[in-house]
Amino acid sequence: MQLRDKLDQDRMLITAWSTSPSEEMAGALARCPFDTVTVDMQHGAHTETTAFASAKAIFAAGKPAIMRIPVGRNDLASRALDMGFEAVIAPMINSVSDAEAFAAAMKYPPVGERSWGPMRALQLHSGHSPESYFRSANSETLALAMIETRAAFAALDGILATDGIDGIFVGPSDLSISWSDGAGVDPQNEELQDVIAEIGNRAHRAGKAAAIFAVDPADVPRFGKMGYRLAALNTDPAIIHAGAAVMLDKARG
């Protein structure tokens, strides 16, 4: 089942977060009971080579792959789709013009300006012919614009209304920096929780997907009540550390 179809089931999906430049690690995460795996090229150590190989490993495990591109790398958004990723997260979408540029790279005409060349995607998604892929790609691939600044929040309705933008992805840490005018990083800031709730609810009312990075996994049920339907659970090193702590606690009694 594709990521779009899973989101349409109106339940919370959980994505692992791959930062290590290893297709083996990405594939191992995909074989865990996550719903999807996100390959992070903004703050992660992935190169294009390891990211593209990771997409294949994630798909081989039966899970959809998501990529987060670096800031402004809309050219990489198009390449990610060509390599079989089903969704792309774009950071620092702070205006309608930012959203339009991102959407243009993500969607074929007449919605956007994505050029033709999904050869790896057609190999992975073998149920598609070139013709059927072209007809369905605009609706089946997801463009997720990150909301992580005051400017993005002010432009939220316009970003949500942008043709080709399928949803938003909240970065609570960066949003807390912007919200405090650079005073610090505090994603649990009490005032910020109302802002996060409003973003989720406004996205839900607009018929767009709402996703968020859950700094604390215990926050995921609360985010679900706010209208979010995709949550990221920390990075692969943190997942390893958490698992190791549980195992060592058991081993040491």
Rank of each mutant, 00 (worst) to 15 (best):
H125I: 01
Q9P: 09
P91M: 05
R202E: 10
H128Y: 15
Y133A: 03
Q42T: 02
F153K: 11
D219Q: 14
S176D: 13
P187I: 10
G84W: 04
V111S: 09
I159W: 13
V39D: 00
A231E: 12
S176W: 07
G243H: 14
P237T: 10
P172F: 08
A61L: 12
P33D: 15
D8W: 01
A77N: 00
A209L: 09
S180T: 15
A231V: 10
E198A: 13
A53W: 00
I239R: 09
A16L: 05
V220R: 06
L13P: 06
P118T: 06
K63Y: 07
L122M: 06
A152Q: 04
A51D: 01
L175I: 12
I168E: 02
P237F: 12
I159N: 11
T162K: 09
F85K: 00
R4G: 01
L248H: 14
D174V: 05
V170H: 11
H241Q: 15
P237D: 08
D219W: 15
E48A: 09
A16K: 09
A28T: 10
K107S: 09
Y133P: 05
A53C: 04
L142A: 04
L156N: 05
S95M: 08
E23T: 10
E24R: 12
D216A: 12
A154F: 07
T38F: 02
E100K: 15
G253V: 03
L192Q: 04
P64M: 05
A143C: 14
L233S: 07
M119L: 13
G200S: 08
D82Y: 00
V195P: 11
A245W: 03
Y133V: 01
G167I: 07
V170F: 05
A242Q: 15
I177W: 14
T19N: 13
Y133M: 03
I93K: 03
A251M: 14
S78T: 00
V215T: 13
